[in-house]
């Protein structure tokens, strides 16, 4: 960075920048909603929780959603109560509202997010290409207990990861945590045996196919429902495992993708950095 400037100038400058930032924020905070004034009913999230975006869209088409001052009348949108385990054929069937936003209402964001992770993994491989793998040293060979233990734990962790991303629309979690859990199981395998190397080609194929599956699900939506990333499956009863339409499919794709990607990143990072 600014290597030629003396230390003290740099520190004063840094304190100055940080000071401006913090003062600016505190001035703005005083005008922000605080404590129990934070009200979900004032934001667009209200429709996501109540699952009545369709109703709001009808009001929008009739021209009654915005008032004269262009303020949206969010509290006037009609609402049908949702009962867990009974309401069915909702516009979005996920019991977990965060999931319904991540995958359905704002699914395009998530496609971008998956791409960001994919690009980061590819970037790591591009930057570290052609590096020697770390040669296992003799003195710290892991014990037999570690070796067997990580392998048993891997099976359990793998299963748990699959559980998390299949139940993404019902419980907290979803594709990203599920994939991270699976990758942590594979990290355990790295610890358990020096020189362990996963099947690199297999990881690449998995990664590519699951990413393509996500885009293809989007294109099926474009063909079937005339809109990219639209839900083309029935939504079922809220709370069932087979509900929420394509959310489970997308989360399976994301889970596999994130799992294989993070494992590939871990694998690429284990390179020889010793000085000689």
């Amino acid at each position: 960075m600014m290597s030629d400037t003396p230390e003290i100038v740099k520190k004063v400058f840094a304190i100055f920048v940080v000071g401006i930032f913090i003062v600016g924020f505190f001035v703005t905070f005083t005008q922000m909603p605080k404590g129990n004034e934070v009200n979900v009913n004032d934001t667009v999230s209200r429709f996501y929780v109540m699952k009545d975006v369709d109703q709001a869209t009808q009001m929008l088409d009739k021209g009654t959603y915005f008032n004269k001052d262009m303020v949206p009348l969010r509290n006037d949108v009609p609402y049908t109560p949702i009962t867990f385990g009974k309401s069915s054929n909702l516009e979005d069937g996920a019991a977990n509202v965060v999931t319904s936003i991540v995958v359905d209402y704002r699914g395009f964001d998530t496609l971008g997010e998956v791409t960001v992770l994919f690009l980061a993994a590819s970037g790591v491989m591009l930057v570290l290409h052609g590096e020697k793998r770390k040669v296992p040293k003799k003195k710290t060979e892991p014990s037999e207990i570690m070796y067997v233990g990580t392998r048993i734990a891997f099976a359990v962790i793998f299963l748990f990861g699959i559980y998390v991303f299949i139940h993404g629309h019902l419980t907290p979690g979803g594709g990203f945590p599920g994939g991270a859990i699976i990758a942590s199981g594979i990290l355990g395998l790295f610890l358990g045996r020096k020189g362990y190397s996963p099947n690199k080609a297999g990881l690449t194929v998995f990664e590519s196919l699951s990413g393509m599956a996500y885009v293809i699900i989007g294109i099926i939506g474009l063909v079937a429902e005339k809109s990219f990333l639209a839900n083309f499956l029935p939504t079922g009863t809220i709370g069932d495992l087979f509900s929420a339409g394509f959310i489970a499919l997308i989360y399976i794709a994301i889970g596999m993708k994130v799992g294989s990607e993070l494992s590939a990143v871990t694998n690429a990072m284990i390179v020889d950095t010793e000085e000689d």
């Binding site: 934070v38 009913n41 109540m50 867990f84």
Partner: peptide, 24 residues
């Protein structure tokens, strides 16, 4: 913001859940 058998997100037409959008 998760619908379960005991967790009501909407009371009297008002959402009482935490805002799910920033969480996503």
């Amino acid at each position: 913001p998760i619908y379960t058998a005991t967790n009501n997100l909407v009371v009297n037409g008002h959402v009482i859940a935490a805002d799910p959008l920033p969480q996503s």
